[in-house]
Amino acid sequence: MSTLFSKENKEAFTKPLNLDNPIAVQVLGICSSLAVTSQLKPALVMGISVAIITAFSNLVISLIRNTIPNRVRIIVQLVVVAALVTIVSMFLKAYLYDVSVQLSVYVGLIITNCILMGRLEAFAMNHTPWASFLDGLGNGFGYAIILAIVGAIREILGAGSILGFQILPQGLYDAGYMNNGMMVMPAMALILLGCVIWVHRSINKEEKK
């Protein structure tokens, strides 16, 4: 057990959650984070889907890393990722139909998410399966956290609700408050994401040095 949770393995999981966050620090995969974060629920489902796919594609690639012909390795990685994405998308259609409609093409587009290919190429190709799995999980959740933050802010300010439940009281609206229509537009997601990265970097200023 000691090797399973060794320092390196723990770091593979925890680093991408904060100090090496794929969105905030590596600035990867922001395209989908802009498109699916107008509400919290699709943002969460998207984040969890990506976490599952990065974890398992890392695991699979790491397992077969010694057999993959070097010249076609990107294609092999793509096939594995595409297969996993298709499976997740079929599961969403079967068990979370309304969310899968909301996410529409963005589930399929996980295939092109830079985080996935980045982790496969940079980590899974030369690490053991367990470490790769943790690394994938960490990066996926690091992505999910940022999505959830942006999704929550956009839903509160854009619709006054969280996960579909109205949380801003009706009295506030009667007093003249209005939902901010800008918040539901993708452009606002980019600005919010910028703010999240800004806050994140100023908090971590010390540690980065």
């Binding site: 012909p69 070097n70 076609v72 096939v79 594995v80 595409a82 297969a83 298709t86 499976i87 599961f91």
Partner: peptide, 25 residues
């Protein structure tokens, strides 16, 4: 693993495995 024969067989096997998996799910 860099021979042409190996790459062809490897790709073919991979694709068939993935195809069966997807069809099953």
């Amino acid at each position: 693993t860099n021979g042409n024969g190996y790459i062809l067989v490897y790709s073919a096997v991979l694709v068939v495995v993935v195809a069966f998996l997807l069809a099953f799910v």
